[in-house]
Design a protein around this nucleic acid. Sequence first.
DNA 1: TATTGTTATACTCTATAACTATA
DNA 2: TATAGTTATAGAGTATAACAATA
Lengths: 156, 156
Amino acid sequence: MIVTCDEREPVPPVGDRFGYLLKHARERMAALSAEALRPFGVSGREVAVLTVLATGSPPSQLEAAQRLALDRTTMVALIDGLEAKALVTRGPDPSDRRRNIVSLTAAGRSTLAAATRATDEAERAFLAPLETADRERFRRMLQAVVAGEAAGSDRT
Amino acid sequence: MIVTCDEREPVPPVGDRFGYLLKHARERMAALSAEALRPFGVSGREVAVLTVLATGSPPSQLEAAQRLALDRTTMVALIDGLEAKALVTRGPDPSDRRRNIVSLTAAGRSTLAAATRATDEAERAFLAPLETADRERFRRMLQAVVAGEAAGSDRT
DNA sequence: TATTGTTATACTCTATAACTATA
DNA sequence: TATAGTTATAGAGTATAACAATA
């Protein structure tokens, strides 16, 4: 009996791989939320920053970056843009003048409120293919796998 | 009774939003698979291309791009890289000389086999925070929300 | 010395437009 | 005309290194 070299190991379809699935799930969510946010003139990343600024006391740029797991150099440009749109103000922390305290303006708060409603709607559209009971389960599963990161590394 | 303007609408924490969760879940999967693939000298995107080339009959560059929902201009550089590593060959389709048929070399096949095992391992690490029964559920949920995309648009 | 914000720079991934060769 | 591949280019998003101001 001749055994040829054609015993190829089975390769799962690319559509079964988590790398592929997460990439495309994220792209879909990003497209839905970009569309939902267009009327408000802010990007999804900017809404994330506004959200962080609205949670707890106004953080420094570095703290805001850390809460989003972004680099502090990335946060500079993000705050620049939000400041240009008059949605946030920044100024030195009196108790440590190296730090910039970033605060929402009234316009920032109302934009965030509207953007949050639009994002809720985009999330509903994103989750529509799932059964109702699965939607919160899906969120918790994502939170679990993301939390795996914090556990395993010394992320900034 | 005085009602001030401080009745701020509740803003959900950024860590509850699907935009944030999908971004970081993808980053974690990408980091795990980049680490797992390092010994084989290929990126996750390159493994995805090799996987597509190994599935069904050797596709043209355009077909390979479509199966991954990538632009054909993106596929050019990807194939360039794989060809430089001698993992694929490309040449005109005799029956339509506008098209390039892309095929795996023997080295491409064995690299794919090794990379597939490494990726399986990375996926196991990624899914470790979930209970066993939830891991396949999670995959199916991702497939469902990703499929929402194909249903709703005329993607290339 | 160390930390925060900043700038400059570069790299990855992606998309658009225009060109070529084929059909 | 239209299609497949290619090239050049530009835009996000991110990261690194170096600098100024402050601690």
